[in-house]
Structure formats: structure tokens, C-alpha cells
Design a protein around this nucleic acid. Structure first.
Lengths: 234, 234
DNA sequence: GAGTGTGTTGAACGCATGTTCAGTATACTA
DNA sequence: TAGTATACTGAACATGCGTTCAACACACTC
């Protein structure tokens, strides 16, 4: 019996969630207000709380939705052979708000951000191992550490993409900025930038443990609730 | 006639500023309250506003201070030959709050963050040009773009350092985490990770402009005010 | 000692925010 | 038609926030 009133193509709940993703992405979680989000979705502030319990609940719903969406897009990217989700996603114009949201979430220290980071490290490690086997990637002396660093760079570039775009004279999340970014990134990841192994040798002599931390104990949250938000209303 | 009351080793103003840097760094600008900061500094909330005019003024003062401090540390790092300020700064235990603050500022979208980013790009470009001349760095096809990307990665790694540390099983901004991070980073920057030039060639064929954006027009703010905050009181 | 300026405080103000709640409208069930 | 569940609203509440302001304490000048 969902959405007895709304005759739109999407559920009211989905409209609110999308408006929240947009507002959170632009202003950040704290600065974005429930009233703003409600207005953007064309509903009353009370309805937002009616559907999501609290502002924090709304954030959790947005987190789930965006992370799931991102994961899905990433699988496609892996399938196509690219390791940079930024480039893979930049094509989809409607994914930009989600990228923006993700960028904010990573900076805000949302619980979902940690989950996303850990997931990406795990998957990157797998993908990179496969890449090494296939002769596409060079083997690393510290595969796990390298996966962590590369994920940090990828997501870090996402968080600071606004600045990258400004330096490139384009708008944030514009396709050509993303392409230019990727071109430079790929060059570095192919050629390297140090001419000799001076630094590498120096740091290699430092002997640190190469172990993963104890198993993460993060519960794998399943994305059941709200998955039918976009269902058509009667 | 500064600080007629306080008999501490530092000015009250400096104590407030340091407390603010710590609180902003831990909770972020929005969540950190003037009352909290005042309590941490051992003064009344009203005094905070008396000294800095507003919370935003306090943020500006913190920005100036940290950016200046960071710039200074970076110069030393360049002099020592390292291009990674994270590693260069990690040694100074008392710099950790500043790193934490910087990490937050970059995520919050503080005006100072843009200034810092732009400064770093400019300086990185210079340093990298020198490095190429000296035969220490490989020449890039797109030196400016490469500088932008490397700065984005450096600072992005800083923003997400909390997650890097978690994956490495250490505390954020711990020295050994920083070392492990640097080791992996240096490996990638020396060897690259792609085994062949497949991706590089593909992206190189995309023809984008390599120009810098129009001159930035950002006024170079001079750090005169508050520079004597740490002066000893009579 | 009077006058002045600065550091400092406690209490209050005004405002925006997240949240609650009583109540209305609509759709479905029987 | 009556009953019930759900979507939805307007108005209000409580709280925490940044900020203001009148007053006090101390140091300095004359």
C-alpha cells in the first residue's frame, strides 16, 4: 500500500532520498537541512522524518543506496578492464550526484565511507592479483599495501575532484576533466615518475610488517529496505 | 599591551587558536562548537569571539596558521629531496594536530583548502621540473596535469589517512603507518603498476588541451596578524 | 587618585534546527 | 457504509547554536 497519494513515476520516498543525496552532496550532511530536502522533494519536513525516522536514518538510507549503486558500476568497470571507477562512472550523467555524495561521505567520515573503503581494498587486491597473473600488471613487493594506497589515491582524487577540476579549468565532474585526470593518472601508473630506484631502495630497507589487520568484523549490511523505492506507483 | 591577565607561556589567543585547531581537526568545523573550544582553552565562549570576531574568523586564523606551518615544513621536505610532505611531516609529533586539521579542511571545502591545493600544484610543478633536469624524475608528456594529479593523490591520501591507518592496523597519523604508506607509494611511483603501455596509449589518443586555467586571481594573503601569538607574556 | 584601554566573564538573546504530535485525506477491506 | 491503515501536513516544541552586551578586573598614563 505504498504511495496512495503520489501519482508521480517514482515513490515519494525515492524522491525524498534523491533530493537528500543531492543536498548532502552539495552542502554536506550537517549544513543540509531537513527543511531544504523536504522543499526540494516537494513535501513537508514532517514527511521526511515519517519515512526515515530521523535525519541520521535518512543518511543511512542514502549511504546504502549510493554504495550499492557504486558497487554495481564498479563491477561493470572491472568487467571492461578499467581499474578507475571515476572514469568508468563519469560517462553516466545521472551518476554525478552519487559521485558528489560519495565524495562528501568520504570526507565526513560516514560509517558507510569506511565500509566502502574496505570493500574497495578487498576487491582491488583481488583484481590486481588477477591482473598480475594475466601479465597486465606488474607484481608488487607489497600487494596489500599497494592496494590500500591505490584505493586511497582513487578515492582521495574523488574527494578533491573539485580542486582538480578548478586547476583544469572545468566544472567538477565534467567528463573532459575526468578524462584529463585519467590520462595523467594512467601515465604515472604506467611509467612511474622516479627515474631511478633510489627512493624505492631507501624505503624498502625499512622493515615493516606486511600483514593485514585482524578480520574487520564489519557486518555485511544487506540492501533490502528501500530497494523498491523506484517502483511505479498505482 | 597584549595579555595583561594570562601568565601562561603562550598568549591566550594562541591557546584558543590551538584548541580550535584540535577541535576542528577532530570534529570538523560545523560540529565543533565555540563553547567546546572555549572550554578546551580554559576561557569563556565570549572571549573567543572577542579575539576572533566570529567563528568564521577563528577558522580563518586557524587556516592561516596551519597553511603557513605546512608551507614551512614543505620547504624543508623539498630541500631534503622528498616530495611527500606526509612522510616529511610525520616525524614531528606536534604537527599531527595540524595534519588532522588540514585533512578536515580539505574535506570541508574551506577557502584555504583551495589556496593550499593551488600553491602545492604550483610548487610541485617547479620542483618536478627541477627533478627532471637533474635526471631524478622522468619527463612527463603533460607535466602540469601530472602535477595536479600527484598533488590530488598526496592530499587525497591525507584526507583518507584515517582509513589507510585502519587498513594497516595502526592509529591514524602514526609514524609506522606513514612509513608503510610511503613505501608502497614510492614503489608505485618508481615502477608503475601497468605492465605495458596499453592503457597509456589508449588515453593518450584522446586529445585534450593541456593549458592551465586563467591566472587564479587569488590574493596572496599575508600572515601578519597573530603571528606573534606565541610570544611570551609579561 | 582619576581616567582610559584591554582582557575577561556570565547571562541572556535570537535564531535555526531536528523532532513531535494532533489531525486530515485518501485508499483499501469487509 | 463503517473501519482501518497509510500518506501526508501545519504548527508547535525543545534544544543547541553563534553572538551580543553590560559589567568587572587589571595595567598603564597622567
Amino acid at each position: 500500500m505504498r504511495s496512495t497519494h503520489s501519482t508521480e513515476d517514482r515513490t515519494t520516498r525515492a524522491r525524498i532520498r534523491d533530493a537528500a543525496i543531492a543536498r548532502f552532496g552539495e552542502s554536506g550532511f550537517d549544513k543540509a537541512t531537513v527543511r531544504e530536502i523536504a522543499a526540494a522533494a516537494g513535501v513537508s519536513p514532517a514527511l521526511v522524518l515519517h519515512h526515515f525516522g530521523s535525519k541520521e536514518g535518512l543518511r543511512a538510507a542514502c549511504d546504502e543506496f549510493v554504495v550499492a549503486r557504486f558497487k554495481q558500476g564498479k563491477e561493470e568497470a572491472v568487467r571492461s578492464g578499467s581499474t578507475d571507477p571515476l572514469a568508468a562512472l563519469a560517462g553516466y550523467a545521472d551518476a554525478v550526484p552519487h559521485l558528489r555524495y560519495l565524495s562528501r561521505a568520504l570526507g565526513d567520515g560516514t560509517p558507510a565511507a569506511a565500509r566502502l573503503f574496505d570493500d574497495m581494498v578487498r576487491e582491488s587486491e583481488e583484481v590486481m592479483a588477477l591482473g598480475v597473473e594475466a601479465g597486465m600488471l606488474k607484481p608488487s613487493r607489497h600487494p596489500y599495501d599497494q592496494a590500500v594506497v591505490l584505493v586511497a589515491w582513487q578515492l582521495g582524487g574523488l574527494v578533491l575532484f573539485e580542486h582538480v577540476a578548478r586547476r583544469f579549468g572545468g566544472e567538477a565532474f565534467a567528463t573532459e576533466v575526468a578524462a584529463r585526470y585519467t590520462r595523467a593518472a594512467v601515465e604515472v601508473l604506467t611509467e612511474g615518475t622516479f627515474a631511478d630506484t633510489r627512493f624505492e631502495d631507501a624505503w624498502e630497507s625499512v622493515d615493516f610488517v606486511d600483514e593485514r589487520p585482524p578480520p574487520e568484523g564489519r557486518e555485511q549490511v544487506d540492501v533490502t529496505d528501500g530497494s523498491d523505492d523506484d517502483a511505479v506507483a498505482g
